[in-house]
Amino acid sequence: MQNSHSGVNQLGGVFVNGRPLPDSTRQKIVELAHSGARPCDISRILQVSNGCVSKILGRYYETGSIRPRAIGGSKPRVATPEVVSKIAQYKRECPSIFAWEIRDRLLSEGVCTNDNIPSVSSINRVLRNLASEKQQMGADGMYDKLRMLNGQTGSWGTRPGWYPGTSVPGQPTQDGCQQQEGGGENTNSISSNGEDSDEAQMRLQLKRKLQRNRTSFTQEQIEALEKEFERTHYPDVFARERLAAKIDLPEARIQVWFSNRRAKWRREEKLRNQRRQASNTPSHIPISSSFSTSVYQPIPQPTTPVSSFTSGSMLGRTDTALTNTYSALPPMPSFTMANNLPMQPPVPSQTSSYSCMLPTSPSVNGRSYDTYTPPHMQTHMNSQPMGTSGTTSTGLISPGVSVPVQVPGSEPDMSQYWPRLQ
């Protein structure tokens, strides 16, 4: 039975679970980093996980050691009161100082060594604690504590007292930064006198190289990059290397530039699409467009005044059976039934097929058609009795279509119309 579990990581490298990497692998990681390889490249070359490479390099940059820390136990506290007071002093002298600059000053002034120097995250935590204590304490208590930490007896009751030896409130920041720059020169002199001055200088240079600022491109470089971006948004590694040799930039910087440029292009394309949609959409909808001609068919113009009344309900007709019959029939052209047409008796099958359309009241044959006459024609229609054979009435077949029909004066039988409509 094995005491430890061995495995293979996602890159194909072998590791022992819970145990640190061998010293030979750690040394190779540092050597590759000094030669300029990126952590992701080191991870692929040595088949070590990216997190492990970053952790080893980060500890090497901070402490200069590649040895693993002790497994188990607690780390001794490195942010001692003396170190905290120095950090507060540096922050007062130059409020814009960075944590890694404070760390360098602690090393250069001999406050800490490589073994007990606090990390950048520890210094940031100390600065946050100082800021929170400043908010919790009152103004007087804060000034007393700062005077105690600074070891001075001057008056701290006013704002300019934060910067000793100065009279203009805006000047101390520059003086403090100048003092810090002077301390940086002392850093070089002190570290050069040490035993491991060369190694420390190499480590600091490598650290500065990794902690780079934003790349500033010249106009020629920007023009070359934009020209390549117009050709393709995704250049391959050969195109990037050719462009890197042409404009004297690292291939990694060119790759990052193209990634950022593609993101910018997507944002601009989104804005262009929004403007295009806004320009195509009308600002207001016309009133006429809300009524579609496919839904509402136009009603033909009436030929006679009587045809303006298109349904039985508008003429005072309360018989719903006839109203439904007229509205359900398709529109037909106007025609006239003459008196000489043969009077065919209704076929029983045809009569039964339209039995649902006729009223059940037996008085329908005896009703006159003056009910369908509009009010303004009552006088004219009353002067001509319906009993004469020459009287013409208008029957409504569908809305908007008038059918003048000659009705025999002897017997106005409704059943004569249905064979004609089939």
Rank of each mutant, 00 (worst) to 15 (best):
K75S: 07
R147E: 11
E82L: 09
S132R: 08
V16F: 05
R38K: 11
D115Y: 11
M137L: 10
I97A: 15
I97M: 06
H5D: 13
L107F: 12
Y61W: 08
L106N: 02
K28S: 09
I123E: 00
I66D: 04
R59M: 05
R59C: 04
G7S: 06
E109T: 14
H5K: 07
G13S: 02
N9W: 01
S49F: 04
K91H: 03
G36E: 05
R92G: 10
V83T: 15
Q2C: 09
I42H: 01
G110A: 14
V30K: 14
L11D: 00
G141Y: 11
L46V: 14
R77F: 02
H34D: 14
S43T: 04
I56W: 15
V14H: 06
G51R: 15
C112F: 04
N3Y: 12
E133D: 09
S35M: 10
V14E: 09
S6R: 07
C40H: 05
I102Q: 15
R92W: 09
E93Q: 11
P118N: 01
C112D: 15
Y90E: 15
L32G: 03
K134I: 11
V48F: 01
L107C: 09
P39I: 12
R59P: 01
D104V: 13
K134Q: 08
G13Y: 01
R92I: 12
M142R: 12
S54Y: 14
I42T: 04
V16C: 07
F15Q: 03
E93D: 13
P22V: 05
L107K: 05
R59G: 02
K28R: 09
S121R: 01
D115C: 13
M142S: 11
F98W: 09
S122M: 04
V30C: 07
I102R: 01
M148G: 07
R103M: 06
D144Y: 10
P76S: 06
N50Q: 15
R26M: 01
T80K: 11
P20L: 01
V78H: 02
R128E: 04
G110V: 13
R128K: 09
E93W: 14
H5E: 11
I45W: 12
P76Y: 04
P39K: 13
Y61F: 11
L107G: 09
S121Q: 04
Y90A: 15
V84T: 12
S4G: 11
R44F: 01
S85K: 09
R77T: 08
G12K: 04
I45R: 10
P81Q: 13
D115W: 10
G73L: 01
